[in-house]
Every structure is written in structure tokens, then in C-alpha cells.
Amino acid sequence: METLQNIAQGLLERGDVSMVIGYTPGTIPGKTKTIFARTPEAAQKLTFNENCVNNLSIYLTRQYGNIGEKPVALVVKACDARTVNVLIQENQLKREQVYLIAVPCNGVKDEHGVEQGKCKSCAQRVPKDYDALAGETPAPVEIDPTLRFKALEQFDAMSPDERWEFWMKEFEKCVKCYACRQACPLCYCERCITDKTTPRWIEPDTSTAANLSWHITRAFHLAGRCIGCGECERACHQNIPLGLLNRKMAKEVFDNFGYRAGESAEAKPVFADFRYDDKEEFIR
């Protein structure tokens, strides 16, 4: 069994990768921060524990400019690896540009010790596809995959009016800091719709209506793409349950097309796919 640090050290010593992007202890108990290890010595600072909530695949997106001629290594949990798959599907990078160091994961917690919503329904202890595994292959677990839509039940049971009231109360809180967008590895648009001014699509103020149009637009743009890593919800200090919106879209896509985002880097993205047996008349 190889440790995370040793795998990373070897990669850097051999010059196989330009850097290893991973976790290192943070400044507050229960928090971790990102480290870009560029030297074999720096690799010793890498760590993995149940507080490694962040989805580091964000640093593979083009805005960070980390992908150069040499591949970069990325420490991934199963969910993070699914994001990498989507990035590959969407031509944001090539599989060979990233060296995936998988870490076995039994669920992660934030600094307050709260287990992340995504973990409760996750049976995947290691990614399907990786280049190296740090640690031992854990024993498989059985968890009903539809559990991931459990949180929606209560929400779907509401009347449209109740639902409207629920969301208006939530969106009232938004301060438009865009932490949801910035923390999302799939919000990689070089110019976000909110930043476009000619014409202005979404009002930049924090009225509830302007907040609603932002969050709904974002949820639609992530439909069939969001793998449910929960970073948007975690980054939201206003405690808006953004994950619910994304999960709702994921459920619609799953129910209608039997598609789950990020399962494979080779799969066609659901909205780039076309089938002759599509149930909708208009598209045939």
C-alpha cells in the first residue's frame, strides 16, 4: 500500500507531473486548505482526512491556468472524480492531462462536524477510474442510490404556493457574493451570464427577484451536468439550500433520460445526445 505522500513524492521526483493538488491542514480545526505541491518536499505536507470536503477539481478549470504541458496530479474522492469526468466530457481538459490520485472516502464533514448531504447516499468509496490509489481498497457498501433524491420528497410534497414561499424566503438571504458560482468546478464559463451587460440578463442587485433569477438560471445551466458535489451549498454562508435545486434538476434528468452526470468521461453529455427513441415528439 502506498501513502498519499509517497505517491505524490514519486510523481514529483520523476517529474511526471508539474504539481500535485491536494489537501493540507487549515488554520481552524476541522478546516483544510488546498496545497499546490511542486516539490517532493512539499508532497510531505499533503494530507487526507474526513475534513477534506473541498472538491479540488475546480483548480483544473482554465481560469486557474494550472494545466500546462505536463499533467497535474489531483487528489480525488469518488465525487470529485465524477466532476473530472464532466470536465473531460465537456472538453475542458483531456484525461491524460490529469493524474488522479484516488483517496478512499467514507464521507466528509465540515468544520462543524456536519456530514455533507451528498455522503449519506454515496456508496462509492473510491472513484471508478484513477491512476493511483492512496491506501487500501475499502470494502464495498450497499446504499440505495435513489437515496440521493430523498431530500426532494418533502419539497415535492409542497404545493406550488408553498414552494414559492419557501424559495422566496431562501433567496431573500442571498448577498450575491457568487461563492456558489466560484466554488463550482462546472461554473467555468469565461464570462458568466451575470457579468454580461449588453444586454443585462440578470439584475445585479440583491432584491429577491434578482436573486431568484440568478439561482434559477444557474440551476438550469447545471442541469445534467452537476454531479452533486455540494460545494455551492457549502460555500453559501447564507445557508441557502442550493443543492436542492441541483438535485431536483438531476432527478428530472435521471427520470427522463436515465442519465447520471459524471459516471463516465466517455459518455455523451445528456444535452449533447440524441436518441431515435426519444419520448418527445418535437425532437424526432
Binding site: 488546498t34 499546490f36 475546480i58 448577498v175 457574493c177 461563492a179 466554488a183 460555500a235
Partner: peptide, 11 residues
């Protein structure tokens, strides 16, 4: 360069 560029800190 690891900063995500959100406005949390400022807001």
C-alpha cells in the same frame, strides 16, 4: 492563486 474569487470575505 488558490482563492476562488468569490465575494464572501468582502460581503
Amino acid at each position: 492563486s488558490r482563492c476562488l474569487g468569490c465575494g464572501s470575505c468582502a460581503y
